[in-house]
Design a protein around this nucleic acid. Structure first.
Lengths: 214, 214
DNA sequence: GTAATGTTTTACCAACCGGTCAAATTATCG
DNA sequence: CGATAATTTGACCGGTTGGTAAAACATTAC
């Protein structure tokens, strides 16, 4: 007799781990393009190379898959911000934050789009996480930035909007990739656009934040 | 006998104009939140206060509604960029472009999200418009910016990434509104965040573009 | 081996979805 | 008014969707 699914967390088999990972990988592909409602279980199952009932043996509902993906993304997504170091050199901290966020947009575009889809649709599944852990982390780092400005190490500016603008400019290259490619044309079929973007953003933010002695 | 729908463009009645507008308004509400696939005709019909077959009397398919909305948005969305004037003062042209884009994010968030949803999902319905008219317009304005830089009127920078960063930072306040509100907290329940954002973005871009004489 | 447990498949269902049809109702115009 | 055209409705349809039940099959432990 099959173990009821509620007990699955007690004993994990080799196959369970493998298949669950396979499903999450496939689901990320589909969810990140089609959003939650636009994605069907069949699509995920096909992408994972298994039948729908088989998939539903590992995840009871479509929501369960989505929730697990969102939870993971939410965690890794904030990694660069967490690494933001109050003791470090302000300029290089901000510079490397921008660079790391841009690298994530390049290397994990599906994760970025999954998150964008979710927030765009009103963040129905993660409202609490946004208002809780996310807000607290941003509050903390905003205070760091504000302290740097007070100490005259960088130009005075609103730290929250600074963070928003770093998020938006970097994630743009993942979320609006189709548009970026369309506008830049075939000459940017490779990944040169990410290097150009890095140069541009670095200049933009660094010049804007440099303390003006005039 | 009812006029076949193909002939509708020939004679337009009062009711037709009113109802079509009503439907498009309702559809914008739903599409902008749920995306194309996530939206059902029933949802639009209910939001428009009519039955599904009644709605389908005015628009033959769900695609038809979506297409018309997208076409409208695409046009008005580029209005600020079109207004970009090569003969004007570089600094004030860029400054007012930023301001106008931010005003659009504030006043037409649904339109912004409709567009974002579409691009995020790979722009299946508007790929041609992106690669054609949009690219041409951006190419033209990018050349203007490049000329300004060559003439020493603004700092040298990649004009395409400059435009991308203006798009992303301004639209962020519409597309990621939930997140922005969550992070800023209740103190920003009103629209003060748009004024703060305007101040911040103006400083960021203007300082970054100002010609450095050092 | 064999029994217990874990995995996969086949068949299925009720709800929903986009869309049609024909009849009923309402507005327009002479 | 009456006729004609425009609008609205309810009943319906084939296909899809999220999810279930149960039996067949595979794996593991003894």
């Amino acid at each position: 007799m099959a173990v009821p699914r509620a007990a699955k967390t007690q004993r994990r088999t080799r196959i369970q781990g493998e298949k669950e990972e396979l499903i999450l990988e496939a689901a990320l592909d589909v969810f990140s393009v089609s959003g939650f409602r636009g994605t069907t279980i069949d699509q995920i199952a096909e992408a994972a190379g298994m039948s729908k009932p088989n998939l539903l043996y590992y995840f009871r509902t479509k929501e369960a898959i989505h929730r697990q993906l969102i939870d993971r993304v939410l965690f890794t997504w904030l990694e660069p911000l967490r690494a933001f170091n109050a003791e470090g050199n302000p300029e290089s901290e901000i510079r490397s934050y921008i660079r790391r966020k841009l690298e994530m947009a390049r290397d994990f575009p599906r994760e970025s789009r999954l998150f964008a889809n979710e927030v765009l649709q009103g963040a129905p599944h993660i409202e609490d996480e946004l208002k809780g852990p996310l807000k607290e982390l941003v509050d903390e780092k905003a205070e760091v930035i504000r302290a740097w400005a007070r100490a005259g190490k960088i130009a005075k500016c609103d730290p929250y909007h600074l963070i928003f603008s770093i998020w938006s400019t970097t994630q743009h290259y993942a979320d609006f990739d189709v548009q970026v490619r369309a506008v830049l044309g075939q000459s940017y079929a490779g990944e040169g656009r990410f290097e150009d973007a890095a140069r541009f953003l670095e200049q933009l933010f660094m010049d804007g934040l440099r303390v003006r002695t005039s």
